[in-house]
Design a protein around this nucleic acid. Structure first.
Lengths: 338, 338
DNA sequence: ATGAAAGCGCTAACAC
DNA sequence: GTGTTAGCGCTTTCAT
């Protein structure tokens, strides 16, 4: 079944069928209905590969993420897909799995599929790979990592503002010995959050000892072992801020394991507000940056570039807001301290 | 950049380039290296749309799921994608979002992309839509829902065996008043689990009152409200089996809200073993069917059909195993009962 | 082993 | 408003 057979059946030229399907040029009502009817009867579906080849546009966007099993991503992917389909675009999702080999493969796949744009929603992408994409003049949008330019946009999550809210909250609760469990320090986004943490403490004249910082890996196990290390300190923290929720959940496990309680003994704040965070015991206080908004912004910047011919990339900032639940409380033992 | 320019650069015919890339026919070593070098230098990526058009095979599989934000799916998707990429195939993921409109759209997208096969990993697909796919002779594989036939395979999770293990465990712990929180009863897979539950209780000569069955929706809120209803019973259950983990987590919330404790007052068993289940307090006892295995089997049955020309579909069964954690314990108040 | 050329199913430019 | 036709970039006969 192809457009030629269909054209024959509807007694029109193939071009006319194409016009009816795409609505590019007005077609008389009589012909239109005849074509539509033929489409119905023959159960015709236009071949997107031929379409892509003929038009030079694939109507596919690539969405590169680290790992779909990281709970941060599913909602992002879903929102992106929903808005894409609404705009008649397809989405190819590619997981880098944090592996350089896979990243290269991801980029290659995008290039081969001749995607109309790529949203790089992982911070671990090699600059060299991004350059490959840019050389092909493919519109790009990055999360936190890009410098805006021709056909490249950036979405920036306001970590600094988020960290400030979190720390204000803890300071108000009387905490002064506050730890930070970071992500892998080779990631830009991890360093940003870490930096914001230290900066703000210093601004408040609170010492920010390096012993109070523990490196995690943005996963549960890393949060757990980072917290274990912090608990071994002579003067362990009374509150802990983590670089993401998964780390916080791991930290919570370590705290419980040590026979301590959240938030009675130690207050805990996460980052991301993954769905799970509201279900654990106690529900986690955390910072949220709307993933739906990130997805929408990412999509729109690609759409504007590939469909509306917008050349200049845009920068946009997504606010982070503190969601207070039950993992934070007033500092314990005010009596005990000197 | 296209194959013609490349051929000119390497001083060969386009067909030869194609041969080198695909390895379809032996090419002399001299020519091969010349072509490879040209590919390197020109940074050439074959256009998959042209490839699909020329060869009639898209090298894409469709993967239809209900909702990527349902924690059951990410691991399945990831495993499927990993094995697909390993075999040189691409994957298009489509969420039905439980909406008939979206399901139809999903199927249409698959048809338009001329996918080489579709894995339907949601039980809510309309038979009519499956027929559309079948009419196009596209290899199919379903989860629990299909009758095996030409180009259609089925993967069956052994719910019955799983439910038996779960109930044996509860019976051993002394429970006799056991409830079931089902999924939406319009789903085949929900009914299967429900049926297995009743059957097994009857076999053990334990009454299975309909008041002890509550319908959920496979999500947290449904589990919560189903449990609330069960708690209002004159004689509430001492143990509850749920149709999936999300329901169990909701149920756990309702139990805590009622001032009761899991597992002291009520034992709870889930189904799926989503990652989250091991992190909540208390860690959930649950039934696991390997999602990696499901994905691998699904992929292989499509691959065998589309690449090896296997016409007959296959049936396979995935075992469910009980993972005992801390949400189940001996029945309380053996003293209290008559 | 390699080249020449005819499609694959569509879009778009051009004619009328 | 509609038809004709030349590509789009590959794969795949068919020659040689």
């Amino acid at each position: 079944m192809n457009i030629r057979e269909l054209a024959k059946k509807a007694k029109v030229a193939t071009a006319t069928v194409s016009r009816v399907i795409n609505g590019t040029v007005p077609v008389s009502e009589k012909v239109t209905t005849r074509v539509r009817q033929a489409i119905e009867e023959l159960n015709f579906f236009p071949n997107t590969h031929a379409r892509a080849l003929g038009s030079g546009r694939s109507r596919i966007y690539g969405l590169i993420i680290s790992d779909i099993t990281n709970p941060f991503f599913p909602e992002l992917v879903k929102s992106f897909e929903t808005i894409a389909v609404k705009h008649g675009q397809e989405v190819i999702v590619a997981n880098t799995d944090y592996q350089p080999k896979r990243m290269e493969l991801c980029v290659r796949r995008m290039l081969e599929r001749k995607v109309d744009g790529v949203a790089i929603m992982t911070s671990e992408m090699e600059p060299g790979l991004i350059d490959m994409l840019r050389k092909s003049s493919i519109p790009l949008v990055c999360l936190d990592t890009a410098v805006v330019g021709k056909r490249i946009s950036n979405i920036e999550v306001d970590y600094t503002g988020g960290v400030e809210q979190a720390l204000d909250h803890l300071l108000q609760l009387g905490h002064r010995r506050i730890s930070f469990i970071s992500g892998p320090m080779n990631l830009q986004s991890s360093r940003t959050r870490h930096h914001a943490f230290c900066q703000y403490l210093q601004r408040k004249n609170i010492e920010c000892k390096s012993s109070m910082i523990a490196e995690g890996n943005h996963r549960v196990d890393g949060g757990r072992s980072a917290m274990s290390r912090l608990l071994k300190l002579k003067l362990p923290p009374t509150a802990v801020l983590t670089s993401n929720d998964l780390s916080a959940i791991g930290a919570m496990g370590a705290i419980h394991e040590a026979g301590l309680t959240v938030p009675k003994d130690i207050s805990l704040i996460g980052f991301d507000d993954i769905e799970l965070s509201s279900f654990i015991q106690p529900p986690l206080t955390t910072l949220r940056a709307s993933r739906t908004e990130i997805a929408t912004r990412a999509f729109m910047s690609l759409f504007n570039a590939s469909e509306k011919g917008e050349i200049d990339g845009t920068a946009c900032r997504i606010e982070a807001t503190l969601v207070v639940r039950e993992s934070t409380a007033k500092v314990h033992g005010s009596k005990g301290s000197k």
